[in-house]
């Protein structure tokens, strides 16, 4: 429990909360791309910058990992922050000029044409898919490759990974929606990871409801044998 102010508003934080989490609870919007409540802060996108005042000093910090401390005065927007965010947005727009999410965000921030050379990447390297796969699903099927301009997210060796269960958690969390998932002819296909998983039909209603690997994993996690044969509706 700590009392602090965000944009002049008095807020009370819960133990362990970050500035971003408190702000969210109070309905104060802070832009971000790489944050998800279910995974640890990663400070990759840098968009959640805020200015904090502690005593006499002010500084710019990432709100997604900064603890909501007693007595902090937080500003979610001012000239300095906006300048930094706009710069970041310009960089995102030059890296991924064709992503609707980025285009929309840039437009909202008043960023038009980036001054930098345009690339045609689709991944912003926020790492959410990598983190959700290891922290939430617990499969560690995804990771990074190389560094600098060559850095990208791939399963090891950019080959179909037996650890991937095609659960689609990565698709679900991807902030720019570039991890397609498709079900066709009894298979679930995750093209980006070159993964094709056989689907299992529910014993009762006959509908496909999970991949073979998903069921194996759930059994390992303690799902009883009889439930593993039925879909969510029939259980």
């Amino acid at each position: 429990m700590a009392e602090l102010t965000i944009d002049g508003k008095k807020v009370v934080s819960r133990p362990g909360e970050t500035i971003l989490q408190v702000a969210k609870r109070y309905g104060i919007k802070i832009p971000n791309l790489c944050h998800h409540d279910e995974v640890k802060p990663y400070t990759a996108c840098r968009l959640c910058l805020v200015e904090i005042k502690k005593g006499k000093r002010t500084k710019i910090v990432t709100s997604c990992d900064y603890p909501a401390e007693e007595g902090l005065e937080v500003k979610t927007s001012n000239e300095k922050i906006e300048k930094s965010r706009k710069m970041l947005m310009e960089l995102y727009l030059s890296r991924c000029p064709n992503l609707p999410v980025i285009q929309k965000m840039a437009e909202e921030m008043g960023v038009k044409e980036p001054r930098f050379e345009k690339e045609n990447e689709d991944c912003i390297l926020c790492g959410l898919c990598v983190r959700v796969c290891s922290e939430v699903v617990g499969r560690h099927a995804l990771g990074y490759e190389s560094r600098g301009p060559e850095r990208r997210v791939v399963p090891p060796f950019d080959e179909p990974n037996p650890l991937c269960i095609s659960c689609g958690a990565c698709t679900y969390v991807c902030p720019v929606d570039v991890i397609p998932i498709e079900e066709k002819d009894g298979y679930r296909i995750m093209e980006r990871w070159h993964k094709k998983s056989k689907l299992v039909a529910c014993e009762k209603c006959g509908k496909y409801f999970a991949t073979e690997e998903e069921i194996e994993w759930l059994k390992e996690m303690g799902l009883p044998e009889d439930k593993a044969k039925l879909c969510m509706d029939c259980r």
Binding site: G143, Y144, S146
Partner: peptide, 12 residues
């Protein structure tokens, strides 16, 4: 260790 982790170090 996850292979993805080792692969990251080896390619880094």
């Amino acid at each position: 260790l996850p292979l993805a982790r080792v692969y990251h170090i080896a390619t880094f």
